[in-house]
């Protein structure tokens, strides 16, 4: 099979699996919406009518079929809770989440790479030990603790009181920085330990390769070795990690940050949808993440070819 067909069929199977599992969990076993929609003391007919509307009276297979069909035709419907169209919700929340999460995500990775390069260059010396110790410490602190700590430190009169405790009223660069700083710092803080450690392992492995010895035998400085040889040879794992964590950090990470800081992004919308059983929203989020994963996989394979001449 040609490469892209194999990827595509692989992707198709993955989407099928993801949608199947999320359908079963979130829709089939998910919360029953009947009473939220019509209140406690409805008549039997009313109940039956609503259940039919929601499709509750149909079999698993039929409902899963509808679910898939809706997903593939981008017929996402309207939110059960607010009545707002799902497309509209996505349009509103996704930009907020990207604006909220991307700076921290990118900075956390860059900082991790920089620290890991430094540690690799000074391997087994005190700088390396310090950085390793720092990353293990970072890995041992809970996300929630970081958020609470930074909030107290930066947003309350008990600390510096520079930033808002919660909310997101962004209308320009100044207000953006005002609201995004604390979440961004939290995200950097929480990811940099794991990133540093991962990248250090990759770099140390690369630094042990034969061709690094060659570079040194031909007078390359440690700087040249790290920035040119080690970094360029590590691009595949770096890109892999970067690409594959985007959906996870953006969805899972935003879920917590947005709930905590009361920011109206996709994470909060998703979480609200889970707890209220808002199927149309869940359907869209899960389907989109799965598709995003597959697009990212295809795209990543493409980037591999650009950065590594061995991958044909």
């Amino acid at each position: 099979m040609p490469w892209f067909l194999r990827k595509l069929s692989h992707g198709g199977l993955l989407i099928l699996g993801v949608t199947f599992i999320s359908f079963s969990l979130m829709v089939w076993f998910g919360p029953d919406q009947t009473y939220t929609l019509i209140g406690k003391n409805a008549t039997t007919e009313q109940i039956a009518e609503v259940r039919e509307q929601l499709g509750y009276n149909q079999s698993f297979v039929v409902r899963y079929g509808h679910y898939l069909a809706d997903l593939f035709t981008f017929n996402l419907g309207a939110s059960n809770s607010s009545g707002e169209s799902v497309n509209r919700i996505l349009q509103k929340t996704i930009p907020v989440t990207l604006a909220l999460m991307l700076p921290g995500f990118i900075l956390g990775n860059l900082l991790g790479i920089a620290l890991a390069l430094l540690a690799t260059g000074k391997k087994d010396q005190w700088t390396d030990r310090l950085i390793t110790g720092f990353s293990v410490t970072g890995m041992s602190i809970s996300f929630l603790v970081v958020i609470i700590f930074l909030q107290v430190l930066l947003c309350t009169p008990y600390g510096l009181n520079l930033f808002p405790v919660r909310g997101w009223q962004v209308s320009g660069l100044a207000s953006y920085l005002y609201y995004v700083t604390v979440p961004t710092l939290s995200l950097i803080f929480i990811t940099v330990g794991y990133n540093t450690r991962f990248f250090r392992a990759v770099f140390v492995e690369e630094a042990g390769k034969d061709h690094i010895r060659t570079a040194r035998a031909y007078g390359a400085s440690t700087m040249t070795i790290l920035w040119r040889h080690v970094l360029k040879n590590s691009l595949v794992p770096i890109i892999t990690r970067f690409m594959y964590t985007i959906p996870l950090v953006v969805i899972s990470g935003s879920l917590l940050i947005e709930s905590y800081f009361g920011i109206p992004g996709i994470g909060k919308a998703t979480f609200d949808a889970v707890t209220s059983g808002d199927q149309p929203v869940l359907k869209a989020v899960v389907g989109l993440t799965a598709v995003a994963f597959i697009v990212i996989q295809l795209f990543t394979d493409f980037i591999y070819k650009l950065v590594d001449p061995r991958i044909a």
Binding site: H211, R213, A217, Y218, G219, A220, N233, D308, R310
Partner: peptide, 24 residues
Amino acid sequence: RKLRGNEISMIFQEPLTALDPVFS
């Protein structure tokens, strides 16, 4: 470093891995 590769160079035992794979 100024001497290595300039005044004194070395050829390695393992030709397959001695060159950096990502540079021409």
